[in-house]
Amino acid sequence: MIVDLPSTTTSQVNKKMVELRESGGAVALGRVLTLAIVTSDGAEVEPSIQAANDASREHPARVIVVARGTRQAAARLDAQIRIGGDAGASEVIVLRLYGPLADEGAGSVIPFLLPDAPIVVWWPSDAPEYPAKDPIGALAHRRITDAAADEDPIGALQARARSYTNGDTDLAWTRLTSWRALLAAALDLPPFESVTSATVTGASSSPSTDLLSAWLASYLQVPVRRVQHSRGPGIVSAVLERPSGNVEIVRPDGRNGSLSQPGQPDRQVALHRRDIRDCLTEELRRLDPDEIYEATLQGLAEIVRGEETQETGVPEAPEQTEQTEQTEHTEHTEQRA
């Protein structure tokens, strides 16, 4: 069932929801969380709702869609309520905000939050630079972004590293789950040798490729080379170099990959590029901080700083080094005295 409420208010929407629950028997008691989707009022609204509906079959939720319209229009709130088969296992509230209301998303969301239930905010695109400081993001226990949907995916990913707060995550990271699982499982098989270096190849605009490189560098503590390639979408290959032979995963077409490792026959593995529904469903399974993602972002930031230092070629000032050494010598002398 879909009920449209043009030019309405949040109190009228709440009143209508109560009427629908009383008349149709729909209740919100089985909802385990509130999922707020913040997007522009355009073509991506319906795909985002569909992904949330599919994810709700595992995570029943109240879905609040904040669709921001043009700011040049008169102030207006158009609402839509979806329940039953049109909302999957959820109840969906679509709020289309126009004019000055377009910047008042938090005030429109608060009246519909489920009491005593976790809050997750998802930006399908155009995420704020600091999600945790966004008015709606500040309400959430978990904040989901997608660097791959940004006009500058790599720049967006680097911004995530600068602004990370506990509870942040990005779907570019979620798309790596299968790659990480295969690489970790391969290292659990003989020969049990240390990895000496690694190479990750992928499209130049693939943030997942950068994250996989940073993850390997952080947890293997080895040099990792990031190679740009246009042969396939996203990540094309990952190679872990060891003395007895390399562990290599190659996925040229974005669907199927091959795994090669010493002492084992080559095998075909399913490595299709994960869609939004699968990634969103996985992220809703956990509401605690993702420490591995945080460490990977820190590793990515270190890689970026190293590249910037190499490009500028500016070493530390000698006089600053000399002054530091003199200060340390003085402090050491005072301690001995």
Rank of each mutant, 00 (worst) to 15 (best):
A117M: 10
A26Q: 08
L77D: 01
I93N: 00
T309G: 05
I37M: 05
R31L: 13
L5H: 00
R273Y: 08
I292D: 15
L114H: 01
I81M: 01
E282G: 04
F192G: 01
V236E: 06
L157N: 02
E311T: 10
Y98W: 13
R82E: 10
R336M: 14
S48A: 15
E334H: 03
K15P: 00
V200T: 05
G24K: 12
T10W: 10
S56Q: 08
L171I: 03
S56G: 11
S11F: 07
A75P: 09
S244R: 09
Q268K: 10
L189E: 15
I2M: 02
D168K: 01
V121F: 01
E248H: 13
P243T: 13
S108R: 09
I110N: 11
G137K: 03
T70K: 08
Q158G: 06
P124H: 05
T199D: 12
G254A: 03
A26W: 15
T333P: 03
P252S: 08
S7D: 14
L284R: 00
L183V: 07
G245V: 01
V269Y: 07
T201W: 08
Q228T: 10
A61F: 07
R277K: 10
A28R: 12
E104Y: 09
A102K: 00
T333H: 11
V63F: 07
L212N: 01
G254Y: 05
R82K: 09
T8K: 06
V250C: 02
D54W: 11
A198R: 02
E282T: 07
E22N: 04
D266N: 13
T296E: 05
G155C: 10
T39K: 12
T296A: 02
